[in-house]
């Protein structure tokens, strides 16, 4: 995002700013939660100074999101600092970010499904869906790989570990 201030262009990296503020927000919430548990000095001995330090650091970090842009042009908004070619922060391509969010959603659905479908069926479907999402179209791969993986890993864990592993089959 760009805006003019005193005749000069200022660029704001909104994603960078919001993430820093989110960390700061959580820290402040945590302090209030700890205070609601007890205002005893010993309960807040570490937390209170740590949160104050965190808030100060958030202010310093967040200030980095605002940059003077004398030329009035530059990087697109939302682009994080210190980019390197092998980091997701280099992905100014929105579709790349959406793709990551898509896989995060798939992972969330997998976790939600485990108590209902069992680790075996949920794992099979998750691996198959990920393969499909990443462009795998060969049916024997779409079925075979998740099947072998599920059989070896889920039932392997089940045989090895003394804790109950929820499965639909076996």
């Amino acid at each position: 995002m760009k805006f003019a201030f005193g005749g000069r262009h200022v660029r704001v990296d909104l994603g960078y700013l919001f993430f820093a503020l989110a960390i700061g927000g959580w820290c402040v919430w945590y302090l209030f939660d700890a205070r609601s548990a007890s205002t005893n000095f010993q309960n807040l001995l570490l937390i209170q100074p740590a949160v104050i330090l965190a808030v100060l650091l958030v202010l310093v970090v967040a200030a980095g999101a605002f940059r003077l842009d004398p030329a009035g042009e530059g990087r697109s908004s939302g682009e994080p600092p210190a980019r390197t070619p092998d980091k997701p922060s280099s992905a100014d391509d929105r579709s790349e970010v959406l793709r990551v969010f898509g896989f995060m959603a798939l992972l969330a659905v997998y976790l939600v499904a485990i108590p209902y479908l069992g680790l075996d069926l949920a794992t099979f479907l998750f691996v198959a869906a990920c393969l499909l999402g990443q462009g795998e179209r060969r049916p024997h791969f779409l079925v075979g790989i998740p099947l072998i993986f599920t059989f070896v890993m889920v039932y392997g864990f089940k045989a090895l570990l003394p804790i109950p592993i929820p499965t639909l089959f076996g």
Partner: peptide
Amino acid sequence: RMLVPMIMALSV
């Protein structure tokens, strides 16, 4: 494309 879902499932 095969490794990533398997590592994620293994981590879970």
